[in-house]
Design a protein around this nucleic acid. Structure first.
Length: 438
RNA sequence: GUGGAUGUGGCGCAGUUGGUUAGCGCGUCAGGUUGUGGCCCUGAAGGCCGUGGGUUCGAGUCCCAUCAUCCACCCCA
């Protein structure tokens, strides 16, 4: 007996069985279709990049998690997100692009961090970004949220809410408070508020060294509630710092325009605890949650950054974008039984020739159905009809067409609807019409 | 990087204070029905009980080590 190699894949990497993969592709397709509807063009950058390019900006955590290795004389790394490659791409192809440049990219990224629920080392991200040359109108911030809103409407996985904020409000407010060096840590803590609750947030803030007067003001700030309009009004009354006020104005404009672009009131909510990654967001920031499934975490986040490609070019390239963590989203939808994973086939029809004598008739029928645009599979293996039907049943194909001696002679098939059990003798053309009508 | 769990046919699990041939459900295959699936019945295939060492007359079970996986934290998509 020869020694077999155990079939296995790396920790944190995943692959799906057909039923799940079909469901996954359907979601991916809907996202892509919606992005295109908003005028985003496709982009596909290399998986592997020069380390010096990918790591131009990175520090700390990112650098620890990146897959990086030596290949001959090149120091290379797997991309850990789609934004950094986009920066490089825009800086590199600047003269050949038209601005504002709107692109979407749906592909895999890699991070060698420790995996956990819904977090993998190889994962899909679905990004949209708009990049401006020198400047980018604030309206694009609203448009990105409108696209995200449209995606989640299209996905039809329940109510969702885009929680939106503006970093200028936060930094204006915190500088007014005189937090100084504490600002970054305080922001990180505020960001965790919905997860850990008000009490723990207080504790952590005190631990950080926030004094009582500051704590009181922070408290008043995060407790601002009501409708979006009311929140804006409350913010205006709270602080008159210049940057802060500018942020409030921006937030108001973005929310208003988003509604004009079709985002429903219930799907967008100002949330002052939204902070996002500290690295590059400078204005609008947002996270998206599925109502009733807030424990999923944010299923789509993004925001505005002033200077995308500063590490690659002197040109100023401000942008705004959003990213759906598709692998995570899919894992959670599946865990919660929120997607159909019954169908194991993409075929609408399965042809069952009784025996080898009927192969020519089956071939002809298959060709006719496929030409008519019907996804068609043929069961060529020599098994009992019972086994063939069982296969049809298991994979969930809707229509089965039996082709025996008599059918072949008449140029017909016995078309069976597997759901209703209805069976009729029809021509290939009639069959394609019945299937397409279904 | 830190902490916590779990490893038994393809998948999900049971296996009592260590004690004969390691079970069950699902799935797979074949048959009961030689041209009809789902339900039912019968049968079959499929296990170095994660790996290595130790204790013992005897280890799936106890001890040590190791590997792997999962969960949570950090951070983030």
């Amino acid at each position: 007996m020869e020694q077999k190699v155990t079939p296995k894949i790396l920790q944190g990497f995943i692959e799906l069985l057909p039923a799940d993969q079909i469901a996954f592709e359907e979601i991916k397709g809907k996202i892509e279709k919606t992005y295109r509807r908003f005028g985003f063009v496709p982009l596909d950058t290399p998986t592997l990049e020069y380390s010096e390019v990918l790591l131009a900006k990175a520090g700390g955590e990112t650098e620890k998690q990146i897959y990086r290795f030596q290949h001959h004389d090149s120091d290379v790394a797997l991309r850990f997100d789609l934004t950094v490659p986009l920066s490089r791409y825009v800086a590199q192809h600047y003269p050949d692009l038209s601005f504002p440049f709107k692109r979407y990219q749906i592909s895999k990224s890699f991070r060698g961090e420790r995996p956990q629920k819904g977090r993998y080392r190889e994962f899909y991200q679905c990004d949209i970004d708009v990049i401006g040359a020198e400047e980018l109108d604030l309206s694009y911030d609203a448009e990105v949220t409108a696209a995200i809103s449209a995606v989640f409407c299209e996905l039809d996985i329940g109510e969702f809410v885009i929680r939106i904020n503006n970093r200028k409000i936060l930094s204006g407010f915190f500088s007014e408070l005189g937090l100084g060096d504490l600002t970054a840590d305080v922001m990180r803590t505020i960001d965790k508020l919905p997860k850990i609750g008000l009490e723990k947030t207080h504790e952590e803030l005190i631990k950080l060294g926030v004094n009582e007067a500051q704590l009181e003001k922070i408290d008043a700030f995060v407790k601002i509630s009501g409708s979006n309009k009311e929140k804006i009004a409350a913010l205006r009354a709270l602080c008159s710092n210049e940057k802060f006020t500018f942020g409030v104005d921006e937030l108001e404009k973005v929310v208003n325009l988003a509604h004009g672009l079709g985002v429903k009131e219930k799907n967008m909510e100002i949330d002052l605890s939204i902070v996002r990654g500290l690295d590059y967001y400078t204005g609008t920031v947002y996270e998206t949650f599925i109502v009733g499934h807030e424990n999923f975490g944010s299923v789509c986040s993004g925001g505005r950054y002033d200077d995308l490609a500063g590490f690659y070019t002197d040109k100023k390239l401000p942008g705004v974008g959003a990213s759906i963590g598709l692998s995570r989203l899919f894992a959670q939808l599946k865990d919660n039984g929120m997607i159909n994973t019954e169908t194991k086939t993409v075929s609408k029809a399965l042809l069952l020739p009784m025996g080898e004598e009927q192969f020519p008739a089956a071939a002809k029928t298959a060709e006719a159905l496929r030409s008519a645009g019907v996804e068609t599979d043929v069961y060529w293996s020599a098994k009992s009809l019972k086994a063939k039907f069982k296969y049809a049943d298991r994979c969930g194909v809707k229509f089965v067409a039996v082709i025996g001696e008599s059918e072949a002679a008449e140029g017909k098939v016995s078309l069976r609807n597997m759901t209703t059990g209805e069976q009729t003798s029809v021509s290939a053309e009639q069959a394609s019409q019945i299937i397409k009508k279904d």
